[in-house]
Amino acid sequence: MTSTHTDYRLSQLDQLEAESIHIFREVAAEFEKPVLMFSGGKDSIVMLRLAEKAFYPAKIPFSILQVDTGLDFPEVMETRDRWVERLGINLVVASIDDAIKNGIIPDAAKISRNRLQIPTLLNAIEENGFTAAFGGGRRDEEKARAKERVYSHRDEFGQWDPKMQRPELWSLYNGRLHEGEHMRIFPISNWTELDVWDYIGREEIEIPSIYFAHQRRVFERDGMLMTETPLNPCREGEVAEERSVRFRTCGDITLTGCVESTASTIEEIIAEVSVARVTERGATRGDDKFSEAAMEDRKKEGYF
């Protein structure tokens, strides 16, 4: 929060923060068993920071849930562990490998890990009896998200029905559920990518190092720069070389591309984002590229 002004104005970032904190408190008050879906990316870390502020000096009154794809960046996992330790919160890990081992989801080598996250996540929500799951989705990310409510209702199958969304007025959220249903909650719906960066800078929030420029062996695929790893080797015709890059989103290491950058501080990243001409998902997420409605389709099935 900024210092109070004589004309009682709040900056837009403070207004967004106040709105998000209101949402966190509302959910904690009204839902039996909320959980925060944590990817380790900047948006979910900003959510953690907001939750920390919402309940201070008490601890965050819910667990965090991470879907372990087995393909996560090690830097992201390290950051996650430091946050969990500092806040003293309970971490629930839902692993895709375990879900395959236990026969919860089919071992389909042809299905991307991104797709397998959906049944793994839904199973974890059901198994743990979570009634509300916070997600870091923002409405500026994608067209289907632009229409999603802050409280987004999911049926017993975890599905989202874009045509049957509840009207959401003022700051009055409706959290009514039937047995087996749950609510996805998007407390940073109204934040933009730039707001998230401004906030990370202002609050000096620790984020994974891969967001900052670093040297990495990368190769070009489908117009994106991909990390060379044993999990994602070069195909014929692809040549890996070391470049100065950074990531704009944190996802599956085999699908998440990076951009060439020399931005090594938050200020430099903000300067870069301010003039970026491609959306963060459009630039670096292979999972959103399949069709114009790729995100809408995955959301209907129960994606974040």
Partner: peptide, 30 residues
């Protein structure tokens, strides 16, 4: 740019409330 849901694009109409964001140096707009 603004008609986000598949059914809206198919029908060429806006059905639901969509939230959009832009900013100028002094103000952010929702």
């Amino acid at each position: 740019l603004t008609d986000g849901l598949r059914s809206e694009r198919e029908q060429g109409i806006t059905i639901d409330v969509a939230y959009r964001y832009f900013a100028t140096p002094n103000r952010k707009f929702i």
